[in-house]
Amino acid sequence: MKNIIVCLMPGATFDKPTAGLLAAARGLQPQLTIIVPGIVSDDTTAALAGQADNVICASDDGLDEYQPEIVLGVLQSVCSDLNPDIVLLSNDTYSQEIAPRLAGRLGGVSAGDAQSLSLDGDNLRITRSVYGGKAIATVELRATPAVVWVRAHSFAGLDAKDAPGTIEQRSITVEGDAAKHLGATNIVERHAESSGEVRLEDAAVIVSGGRGLGGPEPFEQLKDLADAMKAQQAASRAACDAGWVPPHWQVGQTGKKVAPELYVAIAISGASQHLMGIADAKVITAINTDADAPIFKHCQFGLVEDYKAVVGPLTEKLKTLLS
């Protein structure tokens, strides 16, 4: 049996990515420990306990919101105690930031964006997309602990176990080596581009636009379409790089990796880097003038038409159909 620890970030709730992350961990073995730094609600703790043997709520005086050096210090302190073989994290920016540093501090090895996890004898193996989605690599992590952040959305959440695990409140004082950079960095402002927006990673339906739109204006039109479908809007890298929409709309290798039920790609040709971001979508469909566009090779169904002639009437039809 391995000593597997799942590290969450401050403010964690039992949402879709957390459920996916825990499912990934439980796929390796049923026994695991969850560390939640900071303040966490009882409901969340209870839900987490349904998924694990132990839930450690690790609090520190200065820790109510994410600060990299404090979170790192707390996780380092707890992990040093527990001596894990495997540490798993989610795919949010904070987890991605922490993973390699935690590995460095614990003397382990780190990897990211795991799409599947398995145990090969003693070692953890993960698969991940590489070369801009053109290849899949299987990577074996041979040092302990193996610290990995997981593409959490790729995993379907599991039901709670029959017997919930224990819940432990642990008050941590970050000190010694773990405390060496406390105060060196300080997040002083946090901005959400638009409040109340569902994270792209959690969206059930996504309407995405690409370079073929030719400018920022058509995204306004796509907004009506997205609203009709209660969808989130996204974009390809070309559209973000051109400044037509904000960078956090970007889906792809270097943007968001999304897993919606439906992904509608409009005027996106489908570079492999973009396809990497939508590999986990259940249904992909596209509107494009070019039937040979690579995007169609990944679509269940598609419409070969100019989006200009389609979007308006389509929006009206969907409004009627979905009202």
Binding site: P68, E69, T93, Q96, E97, I98, A99, P100, R101, A103, G104, R105, S110, A111, G112, D113, R128, S129, V130, Y131, G132, A137, K180, H181, A184, T185, Q253
Partner: peptide, 22 residues
Amino acid sequence: GDWGAGQTGGLLAEQLGLPSVS
């Protein structure tokens, strides 16, 4: 853009014993 691991920055910070922001 090849292996896309995204680890080097964090590991380098720890190697050098420096704080880091991603």
